[in-house]
Lab assay of single mutants.
Amino acid sequence: QKPVSAYALFFRDTQAAIKGQNPNATFGEVSKIVASMWDSLGEEQKQVYKRKTEAAKKEYLKALAAYR
């Protein structure tokens, strides 16, 4: 399975908490809140997710090379 983006990892980590705080929110509303949070996130915090994405990408490429 291809690795997901840094934003997708952040979304996955954040979505449940947002939904818990806003139980009646639609998926679209939750998405807007998470997107706003991502935009206001500091670069250092974004780097945490970007590093996770890079590590997953390297593992994916290694597994793909081994498969071929």
Results as ranks from 00 to 15, higher is better:
Leu64Pro: 15
Asp39Lys: 12
Ala55Ser: 11
Lys58Tyr: 05
Tyr67Asn: 15
Lys2Val: 07
Gln15His: 10
Trp38Tyr: 07
Thr26Tyr: 00
Phe11Lys: 07
Asp13Cys: 05
Gln15Asp: 02
Thr53Ala: 14
Gly42Ile: 00
Ala16Gln: 09
Ala25His: 05
Tyr7His: 07
Lys52Met: 04
Tyr49His: 14
Ser5Gln: 03
Phe11Cys: 05
Asp13Leu: 02
Gln21Asp: 09
Val4Lys: 07
Pro3Gln: 05
Glu59Thr: 10
Trp38Phe: 01
Lys19Asp: 00
Glu29Ile: 01
Lys52Gly: 03
Ala66Glu: 15
Leu41Cys: 02
Gln1Arg: 10
Leu61Tyr: 10
Gln15Ala: 03
Lys62Trp: 01
Leu61Gly: 13
Ser40Ala: 12
Ala63Val: 07
Ala55Thr: 11
Gln47Glu: 11
Gly42Asn: 14
Phe27Ala: 15
Lys2Ile: 12
Gly28Ser: 12
Tyr7Trp: 03
Gln21Ile: 04
Ala8Ser: 12
Gly42Asp: 13
Thr26Glu: 08
Arg12Lys: 12
Ser36Phe: 06
Ala6Arg: 01
Leu9His: 04
Asn22Phe: 05
Gly28Gln: 08
Lys57Gln: 11
Lys52Arg: 12
Ala66His: 14
Leu41Phe: 03
Lys46Gly: 01
Gly20Asp: 15
Leu9Phe: 05
Ser31Phe: 02
Gln1Met: 14
Glu54Tyr: 06
Lys19Leu: 08
Ile33Gln: 09
Ala65Thr: 14
Arg68Ala: 10
Ala16Phe: 08
Gln1Thr: 12
Ile33Asn: 05
Thr14Gln: 14
Ala63Lys: 15
Lys19Glu: 06
Ser31Ala: 09
Val34Cys: 08
Gln1Pro: 04
Gln45Thr: 09
Asn24Lys: 12
Gly20Gln: 15
Glu43Tyr: 13
Asn22Gly: 00
Val30Trp: 05
Gln21Lys: 13
Gln15Met: 10
Lys52Phe: 00
Ser40Asp: 06
Gln1Leu: 09
Gln45Met: 04
Glu44Leu: 02
Lys46Trp: 00
Leu41Arg: 01
Leu9Thr: 11
Glu29Gln: 02
Asp39Phe: 08
Tyr60Arg: 09
Val34Phe: 00
Tyr67Lys: 15
Ala55Gly: 11
Ser31Arg: 10
Lys57Trp: 04
Lys32Gly: 05
Ala56Trp: 03
Lys2Asp: 05
Gln45Glu: 14
Gly20Glu: 14
Val30Arg: 04
Thr26Gly: 07
Asn22Pro: 01
Pro23Lys: 04
Gly20Ile: 12
Ser40Ile: 15
Leu41Asn: 00
Asn22Trp: 07
Ala16Trp: 05
Gln47Asp: 13
Ala25Tyr: 10
Thr26His: 08
Lys46Cys: 01
Arg51Gln: 11
Asp13Met: 02
Lys57Val: 06
Ala66Phe: 03
Tyr60Lys: 14
Lys2Ser: 13
Asn24Trp: 03
Ile33Leu: 12
Asp39Ile: 04
Lys2Met: 05
Ala56Val: 11
Asp13Lys: 02
Gly20Lys: 09
Ala8Thr: 07
Tyr7Gly: 05
Val34Pro: 01
Thr14Ala: 05
Leu64Phe: 06
Ile18Ala: 02
Gln47Lys: 11
Ala16Asn: 13
Met37Pro: 01
Lys57His: 14
Leu61Ser: 15
Ala6Glu: 15
Lys52Tyr: 05
Phe11Trp: 08
Arg68Thr: 12
Ile33Ser: 06
Arg68Asn: 15
Lys19Gly: 02
Phe10Lys: 00
Lys32Glu: 08
Ala35Asp: 06
Lys46Tyr: 02
Leu61Cys: 12
Ala35Gln: 12
Phe27Asn: 15
Ala63Ser: 14
Phe10Thr: 02
Met37Lys: 13
Asp13Ala: 06
Lys62Thr: 11
Lys2Thr: 05
Pro23Asp: 00
Lys52Thr: 04
Glu59Asn: 06
Tyr60His: 15
Ala63Asp: 13
Ser5Pro: 03
Gly42Leu: 02
Pro23Tyr: 00
Asp39Met: 07
Val30Pro: 01
Val34Thr: 03
Val30Tyr: 01
Asn24Pro: 01
Arg12Trp: 02
Ile33Glu: 09
Gly20Met: 06
Trp38Thr: 00
Asn22Met: 03
Asp39Glu: 12
Gln21Asn: 13
Ala25Arg: 10
Gly28Trp: 07
Gln47Cys: 07
Val30Glu: 03
Ala16Asp: 13
Arg68Pro: 15
Ile18Thr: 01
Lys58Phe: 09
Lys2Arg: 06
Leu9Gly: 05
Lys58Glu: 13
Gly42Val: 02
Thr26Gln: 07
Pro3Glu: 07
Lys46Ile: 04
Gln45Asp: 14
Glu59Tyr: 02
Ala25Met: 07
Leu64Arg: 14
Arg68Ile: 02
Gln47Ile: 03
Gln15Gly: 02
Lys58Leu: 08
Lys2Asn: 12
Ala65Met: 13
Asn22His: 13
Lys62Cys: 05
Leu41Asp: 01
Arg68His: 08
Lys58Gly: 10
Ala25Thr: 04
Glu43Met: 06
Val48Ala: 11
Ala16Leu: 07
Pro3Phe: 14
Lys32Tyr: 02
Val4Gly: 12
Arg51Cys: 10
Asp13Trp: 02
Tyr7Gln: 07
Thr53Gly: 13
Leu61Arg: 12
Ala63Ile: 04
Ser36Arg: 09
Lys32Ala: 11
Lys2Cys: 03
Gly28Ala: 10
Phe11Glu: 08
Lys52Asp: 04
Ile18Asp: 00
Ala35Lys: 11
Gly42Phe: 00
Ser5Lys: 08
Val4Ser: 09
Ala17Arg: 14
Leu61Ile: 11
Phe10His: 14
Phe10Ala: 00
Tyr7Lys: 11
Lys46Ser: 01
Ala17Gln: 12
Ala56Cys: 09
Ala6Thr: 02
Asp39Thr: 05
Glu44Ile: 02
Phe10Gly: 00
Ser40Gly: 12
Trp38Val: 00
Asp39Asn: 07
Lys46His: 01
Ile33Lys: 12
Glu54Asn: 09
Ala55Asp: 09
Val34Gly: 04
Lys57Thr: 10
Lys46Ala: 01
Lys57Arg: 08
Ala63Cys: 09
Ala65Cys: 11
Tyr60Phe: 13
Tyr7Glu: 06
Tyr60Val: 10
Gly42Pro: 09
Arg51Leu: 12
Lys46Phe: 00
Ser31Met: 09
Arg12His: 13
Pro23Ser: 05
Glu43Gln: 12
Ser31Asp: 09
Tyr7Ile: 03
Val4Arg: 09
Arg51Thr: 13
Arg68Lys: 14
Glu44Ser: 09
Tyr49Cys: 14
Lys58Asn: 10
Glu43Ala: 10
Trp38Cys: 01
Phe27Met: 12
Leu9Cys: 09
Ala17Val: 12
Ala66Cys: 11
Lys2Ala: 06
Val4Thr: 10
Val34Lys: 00
Asp13Glu: 14
Leu61Ala: 14
Arg51Phe: 06
Arg12Gly: 06
Leu64Ala: 10
Phe11Gly: 00
Ala8Asp: 13
Thr53Leu: 10
Tyr67Val: 15
Phe27Glu: 15
Glu29Lys: 02
Thr53Phe: 15
Val30Gly: 00
Ile18Asn: 01
Gly42Cys: 13
Lys52Asn: 08
Asp13Gly: 01
Ala16Met: 04
